[in-house]
Design a protein around this nucleic acid. Structure first.
Lengths: 117, 117
DNA sequence: AAAATATTTCGTAATATTGCGAAATACTTT
DNA sequence: AAAGTATTTCGCAATATTACGAAATATTTT
């Protein structure tokens, strides 16, 4: 294992965020999350991308843990993976919640800050 | 303006998510959000990257709207930009909230699905 | 005006992402 | 077994990201 530069939490948030960082993946997840599950072939009709490109995006979402595919020959039924979905939701929640109220208001700055060495 | 493939909301979520898609940017935002504002030079000491690289990440966060820099010669004080911070928070909230409960549970699939044409 | 301090921009390199069509794979139906 | 349907993998190209050090920029202090 390589050197751990960042915390597990930071890596996790970044990984989920990366999965959400393309509009087509947002759309895919919205489709899946709103109308239970879907078949890949049905999704592609609503998207402005080729089938092979969709496949790549689905793979990314699967590797991020956010969706799962159930083989239902000859189709594959994709669904939201609730476990990861909830974890991501919670991570983002906490991330945004952890903020003191006094930012961006002219003054309010701690001129100190560590500066080790 | 080019063709609008995705909704404004989808683009917005993806843009914010992209800003959050690197662990070092998560860490930067955590530092800024937890202890009001900071000077760039102070941040870099806690991060495993070069100053010039930090500058790039700060630019990305600024362009995403999540932070703002106040010039306080010869330093620049960076703070969270609350407006965007709250918007992002709300967008992610809604995004994750919009989900019916019956996913990823073996059955529960709508075999139909549009398939126009 | 020269020196010191803080940050950004530039040049460069390595790697990752996004996209497509063609071909490969896998399973079902004829 | 051949044809049909659904998806993935492959090969390729264009662009974006991440990273660094050196040089440029801007402001204050000496």
């Amino acid at each position: 294992m390589t050197k751990n530069k960042y915390s597990e939490e930071q890596e996790k948030i970044a990984r989920y965020a990366k999965a959400l960082s393309h509009p087509v993946r947002i759309q895919i997840l919205q489709i899946l999350s709103q109308q239970s599950c879907c078949y890949s072939g049905d999704i592609v009709d609503d998207l402005p991308i080729a089938r092979s490109t969709l496949s790549q995006h689905l793979t990314e979402l699967r590797e991020a843990g956010l969706i799962q595919g159930e083989f239902n020959p000859p189709k594959i039924k994709y669904c939201i993976r609730t476990e990861a979905w909830n974890e991501a939701n919670q991570l983002f929640d906490l991330f945004f919640k952890n903020k003191n109220g006094e930012t961006a208001t002219k003054n309010s700055c701690s001129t100190k800050a560590s500066k080790s060495k």
